[in-house]
Amino acid sequence: MLTAADRERIRGLLVAAADGDRASLEPLLAVLWPSTLAYCRQVLRGDAMADDAAQDTMIAVFRRMSEYDAERDPLAWVLGIATWQCRTLARRRWRRAEVPAEGTPVAVLDGVDEFMRRDVIRAALATIATLSPADIATLTASILDEDGRPGMTGATFRKRLERARQRLRTAWRSRHGTS
């Protein structure tokens, strides 16, 4: 787990490297590598290609160093690149796995969609977990049948559901920047 001080250190190293300070490259890699590798392993569920994804992420970070905006959270920027690398590798693997010997691609997109769908579900669950227990209960009740709802009138429940959804949208936007 990186502390606020660690993030500031990463920010300083990224800014220095973007300015041409070669001495900051090795410490930057040393501080970013464990977090990136852990993240890639989590996203790819411990798959062997997580190491490749982490390595590709580091290379992409070093290549795109000049694009880093010092106002942004450095770790979010790096992990954003890591997410992209994980998806690219997963997509590549699906293509390789799904192309039959004759060379005709079959159901390639299904595999990619499945991977991305799982990714979105994981992100959604993580966002829901940040809501209050009451909001989580309301959202859960909304997808269950009528009997599963707590004892309240339909109008009250709809109002609570609307508020819970609004808070969920806000939480999602703050975490992922999109609605």
């Binding site: 890699l29 580091m58 290379i59 970070v61 070093f62």
Partner: peptide
């Protein structure tokens, strides 16, 4: 290896 490749990319 990562450091070497990352340096070259940089």
């Amino acid at each position: 290896e990562t450091l070497r490749r990352a340096r070259r990319a940089y």
